[in-house]
Amino acid sequence: MVDKTVLARQFIEAIPHARALGLTLTHIGEGEAEITMPYNADLIGDPRTGVIHGGAVSASLDTCCGAAVMSHPAAPGGTATIDLRIDYMRAATPGQTITTRATCYHITRNVAFVRATAMDDDQDRPVATASGAFTVEGK
């Protein structure tokens, strides 16, 4: 099991787009994952406010959901997104790191179901939430 966690971490950190976004995997295991994305001026969606684009938050949520699936004890290997719905509650505060946490709450032989939230420094009010279905792929 330890091997799989190490493998998942290496896998996430080897993703070119995860590197481009500056994503760091801060926790993984037992169907749960946590990823941080530092504030970066390249990811601004509205230059008038400095708020990070929703798309970058989506990319972080999608990566985190995939990591949660791969870390689930019943998942044999890789995964791909089937569908992902994102709800945007509010603009992320400019200058703050965005932390996403995902839980793979149910898994079958073929499909994994995942929920995730994205937070900034204010831990009481989510920036965005996501729910999605992912494929379960063999080794």
Partner: peptide, 8 residues
Amino acid sequence: HGGVTAAF
């Protein structure tokens, strides 16, 4: 990346 597709 699926997140890039979503963002695009």
